[in-house]
């Protein structure tokens, strides 16, 4: 079973709220001191999904990890390689900068065609920077493939892929033929932790780097000029709430006082 997993490098989403800040003029997040960017956590689970599907299929086949991003995004690819993926591809060129979900998906789709369409294309449910969750679906549409999103499991069954999709009021069991696009949610479970030996092997692996020209893309189609969504502002919301702490000698008394406050405010 061949798979391509798309991974994005993002500012660490576990950055404590107090250390998070944006440069409003530049409409950019300021990297918090001492906090390095990471592979999008859902993408790490997407790599895990690919590895498990291949294992269930007898272990044969190639898993490629693909990322569009600047030099540092190589680390996200290396994380996938250390987990057990075989090949790394990076789309890296200044012309890609300032793009949106559309230009990203366009470039990824071209790269996927160049690598060769695998049995399954796996994405995270959303990149935990802009929290959009659209790139997987756009790639599926561009390539004319079926897509199933926000999955907690994916298995091989009767020559198809059987998935469980997380929906608002439960789960849907869905079967899709291959090739297909899957997007993975956190309910999938923890990704494997690479061994030191695997990290060292991954560090030595070559990552293939492609520019727009390698993909047959005109610089005008991608990056800021090709983008269809325009950002006008980025800011941190102000939160004005002042907490009234309920003070008393014992927890029991605090509970009684809180109940009375809630009644007074007509909340219960």
């Amino acid at each position: 079973m061949d798979a391509i997993v798309c991974v994005k490098q993002i500012p660490d989403p576990e950055t404590p709220a107090a250390a998070f800040s944006v440069d409003e003029a530049a409409m950019r997040v300021v990297e918090a001191p001492g906090v390095s960017p990471v592979i999008n956590p859902f993408d790490q689970q997407a790599v895990e999904a690919a590895l498990r599907l291949r294992e269930a299929d007898g272990g044969a086949g190639t898993i490629s990890v693909l990322s569009l991003g600047p030099d540092s995004a190589r680390d996200a690819i290396k994380t996938g390689l250390a987990m057990g993926a075989d090949e790394g591809y990076q789309l890296n060129d200044p012309a890609f900068e300032g793009g949106d979900a559309w230009t990203t998906a366009l470039a990824l789709a071209k790269a996927i065609e160049k690598i060769g369409l695998p049995d399954v294309l796996i994405f995270g449910r959303q990149a935990a920077d802009l929290d959009q969750g659209t790139v997987g679906s756009i790639v599926a549409e561009l390539l004319g493939l079926p897509s199933v999103t926000v999955l907690r499991s994916a298995e091989l069954a009767d020559g198809e892929i059987r998935v469980s999709r997380v929906v608002a009021d439960g789960f849907e069991s869905i079967s899709t033929p291959t090739p297909a696009v899957l997007t993975i949610s956190n309910e999938f479970g923890d990704p494997r932790y690479p061994q030191l030996r695997q990290i060292m092997q991954a560090a030595r692996k070559q990552v293939t780097v492609w520019t727009p020209a390698d993909l047959g893309l005109d610089p005008g189609e991608i990056g800021a000029t090709g983008a269809r969504v325009k950002m006008h502002a980025l800011y941190q919301p102000r939160n004005e709430t002042e907490c009234e702490f309920i003070e008393a000698d014992t927890a029991e008394e605090k509970a009684g006082l809180l109940a009375a406050k809630l009644r007074e405010a007509k909340l219960v």
């Binding site: 709430t241 907490c243 927890a251 605090k254 219960v268």
Partner: peptide, 26 residues
């Protein structure tokens, strides 16, 4: 607490039984 109107700083295990009883009564 930065988002809260009311807050109790304590072990929830000690707060909950009494809170349940008081709310039930109210």
């Amino acid at each position: 607490f930065r988002y809260s109107r009311f807050g109790i700083v304590d072990d929830y295990k000690k707060v909950l039984p009494q809170l349940e009883a008081e709310l039930k009564r109210l």
